[in-house]
Design a protein around this nucleic acid. Structure first.
Length: 309
DNA sequence: AAGACGAAAGTGGTTGA
DNA sequence: TCAACAACTTTCGTCTT
């Protein structure tokens, strides 16, 4: 079988000391900060049944319950094949009535869920989100459907909103832009349904930490590991100086990264940084200016400039 | 010529009366 | 429900490298 311990090398610098962050589904090179794998392999138990013989013995209490199946894998149907013929005429009528009701109640919701979860999986795999996030999003969506929160909104937008919420909860933030690109739903709309659904379901979400974005942004910009860790330090200082509250976390992360890149002589244009972070140059400039003023970083930058000559 | 900078006006969301 | 407000964006002109 496949060897999980096969040694991986960083494609950028061929280093082998890699950090695997399971929750986030990222493998990060300790040397150069390159993010190897943005996706999560599912390490949980595999529940396949190989054939009916081994199937019975491997099975414990049935398939694992999961929200990514439309009925959590626990569907019940009134009357399966055999039962019907055990019943007399009177009971048989009752039976048909029951089944009809059950059918009516469940089909509307189930049909919707089936479609929605297919969409959810599509978007989630496009974004290479870890399995745990997908589960969470499916759970959120299921709750939303049960509370009738989808009414008046498109299914897709609620799916996107649920995914966004799930990402935030698992500290593996994707920007609204990324969600928008993956789902084809407008940014505004996702934000709206996201807020609505989390409010209605009472889901508490902490403001996301700018540092959570650093690894992905740095990797996209091909910045070194030192630059990356340095930008995290800058972020910490910025948080102490109260520069972060009320500001968009992506803007702050982008600015910290921009400054760190300058200090390490790995200059990136504001536009490049702005693009991967999904903010404008103006925002970076503003945050950048604040960082310089509050943290006295000017000297560090000048030093590296001279050193380069 | 490209990038950095800053001013001004516009957008969408939050808050507080 | 409305107005004030903060953060962020868009656009555009000017300066710097």
């Amino acid at each position: 079988m496949s060897r999980r311990n096969a040694i991986k090398k960083c494609p950028e610098c061929a280093a082998t000391n890699l950090t695997f962050n399971k929750n986030r589904g990222e493998i990060i090179c300790n040397e150069c900060g390159f993010v190897l794998e943005d996706k999560m392999v599912d390490f949980s138990q595999e529940w396949r049944e190989f054939d009916s013989d081994t199937g019975e013995s491997r099975r414990r209490t049935g398939a694992p319950m999961t929200y990514t199946q439309f009925d959590q894998g626990l569907g019940t149907e009134v009357g399966q094949k055999g039962d019907l013929f055990k019943l007399g005429g009177k009971d048989r009528n009752k039976f048909f009535r029951l089944r009809k009701w059950q059918y009516r109640i469940s089909t509307a919701i189930e049909r919707n869920l089936k479609l929605a979860l297919a969409e959810l999986k599509r978007v989630s795999s496009y974004l290479k989100l870890p399995r745990s996030v997908e589960e969470e999003a499916a759970r959120v969506y299921t709750l939303a459907v049960q509370r009738g929160l989808v009414r008046g909104r498109t299914m897709e937008s609620v799916v996107a909103g649920a995914l966004y919420a799930a990402c935030r909860r698992h500290d593996v933030p994707r920007t609204l832009d990324e969600l928008s690109e993956a789902s084809g739903i407008e940014k505004k709309e996702i934000g709206r349904t996201y807020r609505f659904v989390t409010r209605e379901l009472g889901i508490k979400i902490l403001p996301s930490n700018p540092a959570d974005y650093i690894a992905r942004f740095a990797s996209a910009l091909k910045l070194s590991a030192e630059t990356q860790s340095n930008s995290v330090e800058i972020l910490e200082k910025a948080q102490k100086a109260e520069l972060t509250s009320g500001r968009g976390p992506t803007g702050i992360a982008a600015a910290a990264l921009y400054v760190a890149a300058l200090m390490h002589g790995e200059k990136r244009t504001q536009r490049e940084v702005a693009d991967v972070a999904g903010v404008t140059e103006v925002t970076i400039r503003n945050r950048y200016k604040e960082l310089l003023e509050q943290l006295n970083l000017e000297k560090d930058i000048k030093k590296t400039k001279k050193r380069k000559k």
